[in-house]
């Protein structure tokens, strides 16, 4: 794609990025940060592409490390965000408060 096209995409993404989170409440700051963190794990796609084209031991090694790190970022990021958000579901008065209590005591 030409540079102007890419620049347009970049600019629009900046605005969307600002817009979608402009009304976030304080309690969600950390999960949101963590979710955004998982999203940039999409660099895994880039890591796969460069490793696929790699020639020689140096490039393969760099690619391998990049894929491992990117996977950790993406998978770990989504899992950890889900764990944080799990905690928010107990907000309504639940009949099973004993179960929750036991679960949390471990």
């Amino acid at each position: 794609m030409n540079n102007i096209g890419l620049l347009t995409i970049f600019m629009l993404s900046v605005f969307v990025g600002f817009e979608v989170i402009s009304k976030v409440s304080t309690i969600l700051h950390t999960p949101l940060m963590s979710g955004a963190n998982a999203i940039h794990g999409i660099i895994l796609v880039g890591a796969i592409l460069i490793t696929g084209d790699a020639h020689g031991a140096v490039q393969l090694t760099l690619g391998f490390i990049a894929v491992v790190l990117a996977t950790a970022n993406m998978v770990g990021g989504f899992v950890v965000t889900d764990r944080m958000l799990e905690m928010f579901k107990g907000r309504k008065p639940t009949p099973s408060s004993d179960v929750v209590q036991n679960g949390g005591a471990k």
Partner: peptide, 11 residues
């Protein structure tokens, strides 16, 4: 990658 990275960068 451009879109996802920029979204995270901006937000």
């Amino acid at each position: 990658l451009i879109v996802a990275g920029t979204l995270v960068g901006a937000s």
